[in-house]
Design a protein around this nucleic acid. Structure first.
Lengths: 192, 192
DNA sequence: ATTATTTAATAACAAATGTTATCGTTCGTA
DNA sequence: TACGAACGATAACATTTGTTATTAAATAAT
């Protein structure tokens, strides 16, 4: 649903400069809801500073399914691409400096990129890579115990613990805060 | 890694006829390994008849991550796209009638499709849809208890139980055969 | 047909994880 | 500064899930 997209990194300097005018900068305080469940996503955000969490409601319980930090692009891509209500919410966990572009502009940029075989290949590769990433997450969820998944998460995002409240991490791992706390204390003990 | 691909469904009749010569038919007995961990995937298969399982080895334990039945296309796409050794195995669970095309041909076909904006859009949509599907699997794995995931799986593939040994289903759900057996008997009881 | 192999169910016990409650601590805000 | 809310650790107990072993049924191979 929400998705890290590195479209920008595909482009060379000139091309980047050509597209930057489409992006507008905004600053939002912590806890700002950037997109709410049910709304249709009309923007793609790029994080200059701060941290965003995406999550959906499952019978009253938060399920976090991704965290985003500096230099990532985030959007509710299923909603964005298919013009359907977003299943998830998008929330600033910290005060953020963001850049966003509107749907029409993004679509125009993508169309233009796809006209050039070279860039198109890179773009398609990126989409595939996205699929591979989620396959990996899925495999990990069915094969690795929570402790392993916690360690992997930390490896991917070392800053996670300092910046993200623990109950969000727990909901991402699919476990309770109590269990996560147990894992942490167990790990702390085994280190000493 | 392995992936259902509905590329074929994008094409109209003429186009389909143009591409069919690239596909060759083969028949394989049950338990045939079509691709082994470590090999680089060079083919895309389409299942006319039979059933295929894709899985990888995790410390001596099978982890099944997808089942494919009639009318689906299956390949180890990460290996295929990136020319890297496949992390997974691909195995016929039943005697199968398959059609396959080789990497060079598939790539040629995709390139040709991508030259036409109309078809390209459909192709890109399909890749995105793949991502959305795996996101869904990932969400389900972290939010739904095994019993729910079992019921969902049955709904998606009603023929699953009759055709696939239970320990493969269990490994797909990330649980033991004992636990799956308990779930089944519990469901059977609650129905009566 | 007979035998060996695979598959499925079940029981008994062990380990992992969830639930609820309590208690400090931290943090944002009045 | 003070207050309430959010956060994190921990304990006690309940539930879920895994492990190992046994048995019976189904399937494949000879």
């Amino acid at each position: 649903m929400f998705e890290k997209s590195k479209t920008i990194s595909l482009l060379n300097k000139e091309r980047l400069q050509k597209y930057t005018p489409y992006f507008k900068q905004i600053e939002v305080p912590a806890k700002t809801i950037l997109l709410e469940e049910g709304q249709v996503s009309k923007r793609v955000y790029w994080i200059e500073k701060g941290c965003i969490r995406v999550w959906f409601n499952n019978d009253g319980k938060d399920i976090t399914y991704q965290f985003f930090f500096e230099n990532s692009t985030v959007a509710s891509i299923e909603s964005f691409r298919k013009n359907i209500p977003s299943a998830g919410n998008m929330e600033a966990l910290e005060p953020c400096t963001l850049w966003y572009a509107d749907k029409e502009d993004i679509e125009f940029i993508i169309d233009e990129i796809c006209e050039e075989p070279e860039l198109r290949k890179l773009f398609i590769d990126k989409i595939f890579q996205r699929t591979f990433d989620y396959m990996k997450y899925f495999f990990s969820a069915i094969k690795d115990p929570p402790q392993q998944r916690y360690l992997d998460l930390l490896k991917e995002n070392p800053q996670l613990i300092q910046r993200v409240p623990q109950h969000y991490i727990a909901s991402y791992l699919g476990i309770t805060t109590v269990h996560l706390s147990r894992i942490k204390s167990k790990l702390a003990k085994s280190k000493n």
